[in-house]
Nucleic acid binder design. Structure first.
Length: 459
RNA sequence: GGCUGGGUGGCAGAGUGGCUAUGCACCGGAUUGCAAAUCCGCGUCACGUCGGUUCGACUCCGGCCCCAGCCUCCA
């Protein structure tokens, strides 16, 4: 039985889908005006793992991950670069898809774009207006009337009165209440806009998620996810909008992943301390980044550092080394699989699940030492299958260990040097043999002498 | 100021009212020409701090200290 931590109740709850055997989940994706950084990678990977695990457990999952492609920052960025907004967002959507693919993230079932959902957005605002939850301000904007919604703050544990007390009021805002938020923004000259009953304009930040989730998954669905920073106000506002518009309970389980930190500080655009996925991919593989992300629990902070990425690299090296040269058998080991699932069932405890993989690899190595091929094959099967549940260890071990290294020595050159070295070894010219080995090591090639000859891998 | 979450061995990082987390690093041994990889062994106060509950607490309760986050755009 899967248990998940529901941010709304702040406790782990047994996961029971609305419709038996089926799961409907929505995750807030990117606002596409720049490249994804490692914080975005964490959302992509964490919910990809949830998606994979739910499917592994036999659920039929409808996974919706939206794209926000209309927003003030996008408009500003397009202006700065002197390009059309759609061109800018298309470009960063492509880049996001490339990054996701390299991180081994499966494509969601649906990936709606806000600008393609304008009808639904306008329809929902009209519904709110009809029900008396929206009002038009003097400046032409349409706002949501928070005071009308009972239970505002229940997701984030905030009290509306406290929020009002500490609220900052921006110049030029025409709200009745500082907690009110914009549903529809009247267009200023030159801005991208859509026609609406309130004149040309664009949707506010939160309404697109309410509209897209409802139109794709229905008024009520199982899981809604996103980064912790979306809990308030974004998700709180989504609840207010959706429940006011549909009169139904919106989401059963809210899941939020923790932040990526750099030197004990949140990685974020505004602090400028972020590393983009593509920059990190210059030095580390997508699988290494994925392992790094999974090596801590999804709700805990994740400290970004080269040492952590190096540790991920070492971990994958160890596991692929265990798998290399072993033909996975037909059946898996039930004991490891059970422990792995118990860990995952416990609110996706990936560090614990990865520990099971390590133990499986140790036992696999022991079986190999003892020449027990059947047992080794069974354990290799286990490792590959369980790895697949979290999206790792799916490469051919030999390719993984010897691949990459573009522009460096190719395999033929390496093997020629190994032959040269082995001739020297046969003549007991160890000085020459070690010279060749050291030269290869300088090129990132490590030699492994065994009874059956010399193997090599890249480090 | 209000509200969250957290402080575990050299590092990373799970977890439990009494029993080995796991990985890396270190040290010793096996293996090796020497290495590497692998195996075996190795942390007897590792659990922020001060009290309390208990036969027994790192694990429960309370105070304190410290860290991060939200309350403003942010995954």
């Amino acid at each position: 039985m899967l248990r998940v931590f529901n941010s709304e109740s702040r406790r782990k709850e047994a996961f029971v889908p609305i419709e038996a055997g089926k799961v409907r989940m929505y995750v807030c994706g990117m606002t596409v005006y720049d490249y994804c950084h490692i914080g975005h990678a964490r959302v992509l990977v964490v919910f990809d793992v949830l998606y994979r695990y739910l499917r592994h457990k036999g659920f039929e999952v409808t996974y919706v991950r939206n794209i926000t492609d209309i927003d003030d920052k996008i408009i500003r960025r397009a202006e700065e670069q002197g390009v059309a907004m759609r061109g800018l967002t298309d470009r960063f959507i492509d880049a996001m898809h490339e990054d996701a693919a390299r991180l081994g993230v499966l494509e969601p079932t649906l990936e709606p774009r806000a600008t393609d959902s304008m009808e639904a957005i306008i329809a929902m605002i009209r519904e709110l207006e009809e029900r008396g939850y929206a009002y038009r301000a003097e400046n032409g904007d349409v706002y949501y009337d928070v005071s009308r919604f009972e239970g505002y703050g229940r997701l984030s544990g905030k009290n509306p009165e406290d929020l009002r007390a500490g609220a900052r009021v921006e110049v030029g805002e025409a709200k009745d209440d500082p907690l009110d938020f914009v549903l529809w923004k009247a267009a200023k000259p030159g801005e991208p806009s859509w026609d609406s009953p309130w004149g040309p304009g664009r949707p506010g930040w939160h309404i697109e998620c309410s509209a897209m989730s409802t139109t794709t998954l229905g008024n009520r669905f199982d899981i809604h996810g996103g980064g912790q920073d979306l809990q308030f106000p974004h998700h709180e506002n989504e609840i207010a909008q959706s429940e006011a518009a549909t009169c139904e309970h919106y989401v059963n389980y809210w899941m939020h992943n923790g932040f990526v930190r750099v030197n004990e500080e949140k990685m974020s655009k505004s602090l400028g301390n972020f590393f983009t996925v593509r920059d990190v991919l210059e030095a580390y593989s997508g699988e290494e980044i994925r392992w790094f992300i999974l090596s801590s629990h999804y709700r805990s902070p994740l400290n970004y550092s080269d040492a952590q990425l190096d540790a991920a690299r070492a971990a994958l090296h160890r596991l692929y080394n265990a798998l290399e040269g072993v033909e996975p058998g037909e059946t898996a080991d039930a004991g490891f699989a059970e422990r792995f699932e118990a860990a995952m069932d416990d609110d996706l405890n990936t560090p614990e699940a990865l520990a099971v993989l390590f133990e499986c690899a140790s036992e696999l190595n022991r079986a190999r030492e003892q020449g027990d091929d059947a047992r080794a094959g069974e354990l290799a099967r286990t490792l590959v299958d369980l790895g697949g549940v979290v999206g790792v260890l799916q490469s051919d071990p030999a390719d993984y260990l010897r691949g990459g290294g573009a522009g460096e020595l190719d395999a033929d050159a390496i093997e020629a040097l190994i032959e040269q070295r082995n001739r020297a070894r046969a003549e007991r010219d160890f000085a020459e043999a070690d010279r060749i080995r050291d030269a290869l090591a300088d090129q990132g090639v490590q030699l492994l002498d065994g009874p059956e000859g010399t193997r090599w891998q890249r480090t």
